[in-house]
């Protein structure tokens, strides 16, 4: 029988004795690449219990058994490093970018609130927030620096705020500049995601939008995984807590996860959201599968989705009566106690 090892292809005769060795070149980098690219299937895998060390010496690949560990270790480390170097895929770039975006959102809100409080001491009448405030402060600093042609000049001249000078002004300007830059980076990431999503996942981008599409990829852990998910999973990705509560106890099933941010769902009246979420999730699944296998934009997806949504709207024009929720809560606590 023929089989493959990390140092060569070996043949055993009918008595299980080594009869032939086709050794690989004893070059560490070559061996590492060989290691990664070898397709071992059941037909060519070494028999269980086979003595690699003796065979490596018997074939003349190694001088002695002592050499075995050190060489295999070195080759394996090279192979793993080579595999890692290949793993920087488009998926990973999308995931890191969208996670960075979410991190910036979290941080920048906290910092902006701080800046609003801080700058409020010096110019409470300003009335700007977010990126406008940050970039304004980083540009002018003290309100006395606002030029007469600026619309805020009047407000600044008559403000009840304190004077901002010296070290305080320097500090607050530097602080504001950082926030202003973060907002700028955020919009650059958004543009980047829009580009990369329309080129690698045009259908997903058109059905879900670039940002939501990227978030779904991030939560799923990759494009392929997202495409392989059933659409019922797509519908509730991002609603983990609600989903597990539903599975563990008798809580209602979540209607939507991260896909809630889709304008079709977000802007729909509450009683249609579950139905619309299901329709949107179904189309997102289709879209990501088309992207994975063909990559061509299929415009009929969006049209069909719009038609489906219209049908849902027409069929459910009025809000149903809300049922009492207390029953559900009671049965949850009962069930938990039984588990306890």
């Amino acid at each position: 029988m023929n089989f493959i090892t990390w140092f060569g292809v070996l043949t055993l005769d009918d008595n299980g004795i080594l009869s032939k060795c086709d050794l690989f070149q004893k070059d560490r980098d070559e061996l590492a690449i060989q290691l990664v690219n070898t397709e071992v299937v059941n037909a060519n895998k070494p028999p269980s219990g086979f003595d690699f060390r003796s065979a490596a010496v018997e074939c003349g690949f190694l001088e002695s058994k002592e050499e075995y560990d050190a060489l295999l270790r070195d080759v394996s480390i090279r192979a793993a490093k080579y595999q890692i170097s290949l793993s920087g895929t488009t998926d990973m770039r999308i995931i890191q970018a969208v996670e960075a975006l979410d991190d910036i959102d979290g941080v920048v809100n906290t910092l902006s609130e701080r800046l609003a409080e801080w700058y409020g001491i010096y110019f409470p009448e300003l009335g700007l927030t977010g990126d406008l405030l940050a970039c304004f402060v980083s540009e002018y600093g003290s309100r006395s620096n606002i030029p007469p042609e600026n619309g805020l000049y009047e407000n600044a001249a008559t403000s009840m705020g304190a004077e901002l000078t010296g070290a305080d002004e320097k500090l607050i300007k530097a602080f504001a500049l950082n926030i202003c830059n973060l907002y700028e980076t955020r919009s650059k990431i958004e543009t980047y995601l829009a580009e990369i999503m329309t080129s690698t996942g045009p259908n997903l981008a058109s059905v879900a939008g670039t940002l939501l599409g990227a978030r779904l990829i991030s939560l799923a852990g990759g494009f392929e995984r997202l495409a392989y998910f059933p659409s019922s999973t797509v519908q509730v990705i991002g609603a983990n807590r609600a989903l597990f509560k539903h599975l563990r106890a008798r809580a209602p099933s979540p209607k939507h996860g991260i896909i809630y941010n889709h304008p079709l769902i977000k802007n729909a009246p509450w009683w249609q959201r579950g139905k619309i979420a299901r329709a949107v999730a179904a189309k997102i699944s289709l879209a990501s599968r088309i992207d994975l296998y063909s990559g061509k934009l299929d415009e009929s997806l969006e049209v069909e989705l719009a038609r489906k949504i219209e049908v849902i709207r027409l069929a459910n024009p009025n809000a149903p009566k809300k049922s009492k929720k207390t029953i559900g809560v009671k049965s949850i606590s009962k069930k938990i106690r039984r588990h306890g």
């Binding site: 089989f3 493959i4 090892t5 990390w6 290691l35 071992v40 895998k45 070494p46 690699f52 394996s76």
Partner: peptide, 10 residues
């Protein structure tokens, strides 16, 4: 395991 059967011994 067949994917690393050519590397790992008994």
């Amino acid at each position: 395991p067949h994917l690393y059967a050519h590397i790992v011994e008994t």
